[in-house]
Design a protein around this nucleic acid. Sequence first.
DNA 1: GTATGGTTTCAATTATTTCTGAAATGAATG
DNA 2: CATTCATTTCAGAAATAATTGAAACCATAC
Lengths: 160, 160
Amino acid sequence: MGGAWGISRTMAEVHALLYITGRAMNTDEIMDRLQISRGNASMSIRALLDWGIVSRSNRRGDRKDYFTADQDVWSMFRAIVRERMKREVEPLLAVLFEIRDQLPAADDADGETQGDLMDHQRRLDDMLAFFRTVEKLGQRFAGPTGSGLEAAARLLGRLP
Amino acid sequence: MGGAWGISRTMAEVHALLYITGRAMNTDEIMDRLQISRGNASMSIRALLDWGIVSRSNRRGDRKDYFTADQDVWSMFRAIVRERMKREVEPLLAVLFEIRDQLPAADDADGETQGDLMDHQRRLDDMLAFFRTVEKLGQRFAGPTGSGLEAAARLLGRLP
DNA sequence: GTATGGTTTCAATTATTTCTGAAATGAATG
DNA sequence: CATTCATTTCAGAAATAATTGAAACCATAC
């Protein structure tokens, strides 16, 4: 599953291990089970914490950190969508807006060139509109107030 | 945009060039504009054709192949979703089913072990259910009969 | 059939990403 | 405050992925 989701192989493995076993594990256990280095384990866990799909906990009388994967697939996926929105869609939108603002006004040109510019601008605007819709959908489904993809699932029943 | 979409940098550049200029270009033009090798150009174009977001055409009196990008962002995105479903979600589902079928029956175990197995199986089933929903949503929105994401966009107006 | 103009393939190269391991840092304990 | 145990960082090594360029491969025209 890894590559496709914008996360590294090890990260995916660590998550899979935590999710599928359902247990809380410390770094050494994870290193052992997956045969990976301490550094790699630490970085992967950290990344999973950043994505918000794994959480840290402690046991009394034990100084080690323990990690657990979010056990609800839906909320897990919501976290992933939220994070990818923030990392990919938002910066992309920023760039698209910037480009549009720097575009020469069509009036300045003449004849054929003007037509080209207008076409050009239309394509840019189409793309902008598209990603704004994606952003809104994302907020709707994965945002803090979002009802989650479960709502989308329910839609499968109705709809044209 | 490249990385995030599961396509290589050059592929993304070729597509961007074709989409944003809106013109039909031949391989040499693309090589020139992007400063890439013939082999790379050929492979990227081929991949874009496979994804179904660029099409090939010819001009009479000219043996070169010309390429154009799909000019409709929505249909373009539908093609991408369709392709990623085929390449990622479907194989994943196949593996998940396979794993579930190979799982030992919970009855064979006893006591605590049995509880663990049941939990384990539940998590697997949750994940399966989730990806089946994703698959269905994908078919609904991007499949051959799909109404496209535009429908989803319209939903932004209604919905809870 | 063969010369010409064009496209595809692929082994070798180059670039990018990921992983390791040891050193630096931090945090609790006596 | 020094010791011990655990986590984080990061430069270099290893593994992956992308790119080149030249040779092999079409297809058409002559």
